[in-house]
């Protein structure tokens, strides 16, 4: 066995599938993206190399910066609103009885198993100013006038609520699993020492959850930057480009404006932003917990 593992041919054969997968599914597309980012390719026919023109245009593109701002805003929303709520909910669930625990766990996770298209259209109807649930409820409570929830100025907040609500179940479930993996002996010891719920959460649950929090926050940031389907179906970036997000803007440029080269330059910046975000998180969260 030892001999086999030191045989270079065998080692290469064993890692080849993974290596090939990485080269063809990840590395090659990124390289092609970088390549096309320097062209004016429309997706059809001939194209020319235009150097850094796409990048020059990108840095002066208001809609690109708005998309990036919205994506980062969503990431902040995930970190500051969704995740604190998710971790508290997970801790509360852990303390509930078996039936209630199972019931609420299912309820909170339910939005995640519903198709994105259904979610988007459901919220579209809820937000509709003419027959939507929100305005009907407001009217039943005595408020007059119709609020345009997806209108200019309000749309970004309405979209953020949907996205934070939709992703809540995943975050909660990962935290819940993390909490379940904490040795119950620690809680018993804390209880014997007279620790209350708050102290138990802050001194035991929270510190031991740091690795899970790190993973969850990283996933949240990447998911915020990659956000596409819900926005596409809910507002498609509108009105104007007020609810435009990075991935949706990339798609719009590449497949609606048929500026494939420009879309690829956005994707290159997109990858760089993702790498930077991961590096920042690595700095924030210590490697050894």
């Amino acid at each position: 066995m030892q001999k086999a593992y030191s045989n270079k041919k065998i080692i290469f054969t064993l890692i080849a599938p993974g290596l090939l997968m990485f080269v063809f599914a990840i590395l090659a597309p990124i390289c092609l993206s970088v390549y096309y980012g320097f062209t004016d390719f429309s997706g059809l026919g001939a194209y020319q190399f235009i150097g850094f023109n796409n990048y020059k245009e990108l840095f002066g593109d208001r809609n690109f910066w708005m998309s990036l701002r919205n994506s980062l805003l969503l990431a902040i929303g995930f970190i500051c609103i969704q995740h604190p709520l998710a971790i508290i909910t997970a801790a509360l669930l852990d303390r509930m009885g078996k039936r209630a625990e199972g019931f609420f766990r299912t309820v909170y996770f339910l939005p995640n198993v519903i198709s994105v298209a259904v979610i988007a259209y459901m919220w579209k109807f809820i937000y509709n100013p003419n027959f939507g649930l929100l305005n009907k409820m407001a009217s039943a409570l005595g408020f007059s006038g119709k609020t345009n929830w997806l209108g200019s100025g309000m749309a970004i907040w309405s979209v953020l609520i949907v996205l934070i609500w939709h992703g809540f179940g995943w975050g909660m479930l990962i935290y819940y699993t993390g909490i379940k993996n904490i040795d119950p002996v620690l809680y018993e010891a804390a209880a014997i020492d007279g620790a209350d719920n708050k102290q138990t959460f802050l001194k035991i649950t929270f510190p031991l959850m740091m690795p899970v929090i790190k993973i969850n926050v990283t996933l949240a940031i990447i998911s915020a930057l990659k956000q596409m389907e819900t926005v596409y179906l809910l507002t498609n970036g509108g009105p104007g480009n007020e609810t435009q997000f990075l991935a949706n803007y990339l798609y719009k440029q590449a497949f609606s404006s048929f500026r494939y080269g420009y879309g690829n330059s956005i994707s290159v910046i997109f990858v760089i932003v993702c790498i930077l975000a991961t590096q920042v998180l690595n700095k924030i969260f210590p490697k050894e917990e």
């Binding site: 579209k124 937000y127 100013p129 003419n130 119709k146 345009n148 749309a155």
Partner: peptide
Amino acid sequence: QIGFETTDYGTAQNL
């Protein structure tokens, strides 16, 4: 209608 900027084809026709 209010919110015409986010009303899609089917919804407009339904109104």
